[in-house]
Amino acid sequence: MNDLNRAFAEAFGLIGALDAKLVEIVTLSLEVSVAAVAFAAVAGFPLGAALAVGRFRGRGSIIVLLNALMGLPPVVVGLVVYLLLSRAGPLGEFGILFTPAAMVIAQAVLVTPIIAALSRQTIEDAWREYEEQLRSLGAKRLNAAFTLLWDTRFSLITVMLAGFGRAAAEVGAVMIVGGNIDGVTRVMTTAIALETSKGDLPLALGLGIILVGLVIMVNAAANLIREAALRRYG
C-alpha cells in the first residue's frame, strides 16, 4: 500500500513538474504509436474491407489467421523485425535499427492484424445491412468496400483505438528494435521496464500510472469525437 501511495506521489510529482525528460518520453511514445497505427490502418482497413465483402477461396482461413494474429507476442514481432532490420539482415542497408522508425515498423506489424480483423467484423456487419441497397444501385464489390469503409468511419475510430492501446502498451517489440536509447528511442514502456530493473518500483509504477492516464485521455477524446459525429450524421 505504501508503495502504491509513493507511486501516485511520483506520478503526480512528475506531471506537476512537467519534467522535460518525461515530456520527451511521452511525446516519443505518442509519435511512435500514432504513426504505427496510421500505417497499420492504411494496410489493415483495405484488408479488412476486402475480407468483409469479398468471397474468395481461402477467405475463411485468412480470417481465422488474422484473428489469431491479434494475439501476436510483441517480443516475437520485435525479434523478427530486429533480424530484418539488422545490418546482417535483408533490410540492414537502411540502417534504421535502434531508431524510432524501427519501433514504428514493429508496432505497425503488431497492430495491423488487430485493425484488419476488427474492421473486417465491423464492415461485414455493415455489409449485411447495405448489401441489397448497394447491389441494387449497381455497386461492384470494390465500390462497396470503399463505400462501407467510409460509412463505418466512426466505428473504425474505435478499431484504431484498440490498435493504439495495444501499441502504446507493448514493451517487448520496441525494447528489442529500439534499444531503449536514452533520448532517442526511450518510450514510456521501456522506461518503465528500465526503472523496474533498477529497482525503483515507485517511479516505474508512477510512469505506468501516467501511461494509463494518457491512454484513457486519448480514448476519451476519440470517444467524444465519435459521439459528436454520430449525433451529427446518425
Binding site: 448497394l134 441494387s136 444501385l137 450524421y233
Partner: peptide
C-alpha cells in the same frame, strides 16, 4: 440495367441527402 428498387427500409449512407442521390448517379 435500367432498373431501380426502393426497399421497405431504405438504407441511407452516412452522408448528406444530396450526396446519397449523387452516389447512385456516380455508380450509374
Amino acid at each position: 440495367s435500367r432498373q431501380a428498387m426502393v426497399f421497405q427500409r431504405p438504407v441511407m449512407l452516412r452522408r448528406s441527402a444530396l450526396a446519397n442521390v449523387v452516389y447512385g448517379l456516380k455508380l450509374a
